[in-house]
Write a protein that binds this DNA or RNA. Structure first.
Lengths: 182, 182
DNA sequence: AGGAAATGCTTTACAGGTAAAACACATGCT
DNA sequence: AGCATGTGTTTTACCTGTAAAGCATTTCCT
């Protein structure tokens, strides 16, 4: 199902219609000797991420939350138990300093609470307040419905294939914990 | 090639191994009634973007450039002619203020030059200096080689399919200029 | 011609992130 | 016990992006 140039037949009706394709064409014209293949994947992932985030943020913004804030609350909700700040950095893939700042804001808004560990007084335990849990539970269905609507521009089979290919890529990227040296 | 649950056979050997799958499983346990399908696509795109950018930035950083700076220089290089700041905002998908700031830095570094338009004195024209063009031309091959290496974790057919599916999604997202209301 | 509106760019005020240092406490070694 | 080292979290200084306001200039309309 893949043409010699690596372009699959599935995209035939919108081929060349995205901005990344145009950018790649420009590079090819200037540097015909370079293999611009990776741009077609990485450039598109980046651009899709940017566009999706922008769209996606709308329901969150109505609730007065940024995406990183929602990610933090969501981590607490989906794990179902208290998390320490360090665990939150792992769950949300953000730095400790960023988590500290978000926790400050979310605590002031009454969405999360903290308590000190009794054994080890360095560690804190963070949990959702009732208001926090209700907020997450209220937003999530809207959020998912919204995302479904955004993704409905492509066919369900395409979505499934995309999810599978991305899972494969992501799984392999994540398993090489050490970064490649270039 | 798509199972009833929308998971393609292609991902079988790494199924469930990415962190997004784990997150989705947690949500399913807490809210079994919700359709978490969109997370499998959007969550993975976001996470792939984050991981790839981190990896990808290494060769740029060695040249002392951030990705947004490189994008700006790249836009000038690939179009092959001068661009105005507004054109640069379109080419790089960033705000006018951000472009102004980057131009200031890049001008100070001697990588770009600006001249005023003779007809319309509001507009500026920005072009690469020789040093700027040499920098871009020096980095680009490294950058692409690096990206190729990163993507080599998946098979070439997968890359092609992924590029095609992303092109389709991106093309459709971009063509709906107006954002969805949620 | 002349003022209102539009356009291109920059400035300002501010939000939120990061890296590195700082801090508080725990743990391990001798 | 007592001190070095390690760990969990916060603080600091700074960088970069954005939204909104500001400025200069052009264009439109009568």
């Amino acid at each position: 199902m893949t043409a010699s140039n690596g372009r699959p037949a599935a995209a035939e009706d919108t081929a060349g219609r995205d901005t990344v394709a145009a950018v790649v064409r420009q590079w090819q014209a200037v540097h015909p000797e370079l293999d611009t293949g990776p741009m077609e994947v990485i450039g598109r992932i980046n651009r899709c991420a940017a566009l999706l985030q922008q769209a996606e943020d709308a329901p969150l913004r109505r609730a007065g939350l940024s995406r990183p804030e929602f990610d933090l609350l969501g981590a607490l909700r989906r794990t179902g138990h208290e998390l320490t700040p360090s665990e939150l950095t792992r769950e949300t893939y953000s730095s400790g300093a960023a988590v500290t700042k978000r926790l400050k804001v979310l605590t002031e808004r009454g969405l999360v609470e903290r308590r000190g560990d009794t054994r080890d007084r360095r560690v804190a335990h963070v949990r959702l307040t009732d208001a926090g849990r209700e907020l997450v539970d209220g937003i999530l269905p809207e959020q998912l419905a919204y995302e479904t609507a955004v993704l409905s521009v492509i066919a369900p089979e395409g979505r499934g294939e995309l999810a599978g290919l991305l899972a494969d890529l992501l799984g392999r990227l994540e398993s090489r914990t050490a970064g490649l040296r270039g």
